[in-house]
Design a binder for these strands. Structure first.
Lengths: 350, 350
DNA sequence: CTATTTAAATGGAACGTTCCAATGAAATCC
DNA sequence: GGATTTCATTGGAACGTTCCATTTAAATAG
């Protein structure tokens, strides 16, 4: 008498077969929908599975045909809303494609990163999206080439890695927001946050310098401040800037998180951001919109980048022979209040 | 001549065995570390694995002994920093225990939630941590009981589910923050945000009412406003409150996200939060600390809750016979600026 | 020196699927 | 009506592990 299985002994394909009076092969056909099976039989098998509480064992299936429908997502800092939003994008696309995601937060530790990637491989992940931890070296990714595994590097470029890539237009974005400040009349502008070893910082700082150069502004090296890319980091660096004898009138920050930290520091020094000093960020996380004064920043659409990354990886999984592909996401200026453009417009009108 | 394997044909335990001149059983012993194997042999096998680029196939292993070391994490809203922080806590503990996490964002859709949980089961997850989507019903979780699977419900209580539980002390926390406002002299206090069908709101609102009652304040039902638990929701509800003829002097918000939305709305109405009106939140996400004015709120330590949830689930996985366990996380008042306590202290001193 | 214990290594049957080749039954052809 | 094609179904060999029972070799005991 077939009844819903109790606690132990998971019900398998062959028990379904027995209960339904067919062979396990037939059940398998129903499951995969591949062969031709008479509608009534299919129906009957389906019912039996339902009745017995059958749950498909992908591990076993995987052993035969290797198509795990698992993707790994390795993030360097989940506590940064940018990456949380990126993750949302990735997960959404994966979900729609019937994939499920392993997610790991490395907190910038290469060791953890290695561990997690290995674990994901062991579990049969068909591909991995990696936002590399700070001092990731190319040899950490050798396995991917060796195994011909699908690997996509996101957000932080890893020069020389032959993998697919999804990053925002850092250089252009930074030069755009810098030019905006220059147009507003600023000349003494600081660049703040991020460590100089970060590729992303190099790109953004490069764009910053290019814009400065192009408009004939000179850049004081004392106004190039490093910090961890966190709120506290931004706070500290901004405090340092404000203790300088010759303060800048505007500050380009490495990202929104540091910019918000910088705004906080400015407020502590009784400066009104947007009036006494201009501060701009990068990323346009949802925080930027809601902080007060609202942050002028460069929108890179983290969710969109995540979606794109997932889509590209899936493409690569489905066609392993395909060449690695790169997507450089657009970065456009979002003018809000923290740069003072609004006040300036008011003054001009009044 | 054994060389690192090229693109195809993953190297298996038996190829290692051949190359090392031992039996596959011996290799397995080395892998699991279970039996007695001569140190030199172990060393040799280990080297061979390294040389051939072997990667352990947990799927296959799993087929025999079922210990997947996978845990599923199903979140209803990853875009809320509260859940992102919760996820960080979960993931940290899992990682340390050698587990890897499936993560899925349901965006409050029960359908997605069902899909994802099924998928995770199919992949052999040993347990699932569920932050249930809004109208999750008990029958959505029946499979857990039927399969004797480890299930832990987090953040949103699901009355009647016989599963382990990790939630904060909502009632007490809300009554504490409300009492604080009353002590500051407020009498006309609104409760704002969240939908009344949410258990969490019921609990927090209950605590609010209890505190009001206890101190003899009457509560005007017109000051009980629902909204989606998002920034926009908070903004909208607060705007509605401010258009009332008889405005409240203080507002208790469903959570930090809505409180921040509410602060924004207050600012739009040219009110200085903390002076003209008091606004308090709930959760103490890292945003609360950094918004300006800093948000008075109730700290529930989302990361800690996540850690606890993971720990409890692991316990249950390791001892499936154990009774479900509950953890009610402490909720304590964090006084910052948005409630005006600081200004009031200054005034008193001056 | 034989008998016993211990240590190290091994063969082979699972585990729950898929998929190929084979079989049987029904339908179509000439 | 026999030969062929199509449709449904089936047995059994994989897949990469683990683990039990067994064998072989070495060490210890009497």
């Amino acid at each position: 008498m077939p009844q819903p299985q109790g606690s132990k002994g998971k019900v398998t394909i062959v028990e379904i077969a027995d209960a339904a009076g067919v062979s396990k092969s037939t059940v398998s056909l129903v499951l995969t929908g591949r062969g031709a099976v008479k509608p009534e039989t299919r129906q009957h098998v389906l019912q039996t599975m339902n009745r017995l509480g059958y749950v498909y064992n992908r591990g076993a299936a995987n052993l035969r045909n290797a198509q795990s429908r698992i993707v790994g997502l390795v993030l360097n800092d989940l506590s940064n809303p940018f990456f949380a939003e990126f993750a949302i994008g990735v997960e959404k696309v994966l979900q729609m494609a019937g994939y499920v995601a392993f997610m790991a937060n490395t907190a910038e530790s290469v060791v953890r990163q290695d561990q997690m990637m290995r674990m994901m491989r062991e579990h049969g992940a068909s591909g991995i999206i990696l936002c590399p931890a700070l001092d990731t070296r190319l040899e950490h990714l050798d396995w991917a080439k060796a195994a011909g595994a699908a690997l996509l590097v996101a957000i932080r470029r890893l020069p020389g890695a032959g993998a697919s890539l999804v990053v925002p237009e850092n250089h252009l974005g930074a030069s755009r927001v810098t030019r905006h400040l220059i147009n507003l009349g600023h000349e003494r502008i600081a660049f703040l946050g991020g460590m100089h070893s970060m590729v992303v910082r190099q790109e953004r700082h490069g764009g910053f310098l290019a814009a400065m150069d192009a408009s004939g502004c000179s850049f004081d090296p004392a106004l190039n401040l490093e910090s961890m890319p966190t709120r506290d980091g931004g706070f500290g660096a901004m405090s340092a800037v404000l203790s300088l004898a010759d303060r800048p009138t505007a500050v380009v920050c490495y990202n929104d998180v540091t910019a918000i930290g910088a705004m906080l520091a400015a407020a502590r020094h009784s400066l009104v951001v947007g009036r006494d000093i201009a501060i701009v960020g990068f990323d346009d996380t949802s925080e930027a919109r809601h902080v007060s004064p609202a942050l002028t920043t460069v929108a890179v659409h983290p969710v969109g980048l995540g979606e794109r990354a997932a889509a590209l990886l899936l493409k690569q999984i489905n066609d392993p022979a395909a060449e690695p592909e790169s997507f450089i996401g657009p970065a456009h200026l979002v003018i809000r209040e923290s740069c003072g453009a609004y006040q300036r417009a008011l003054a001009a009108a009044g």
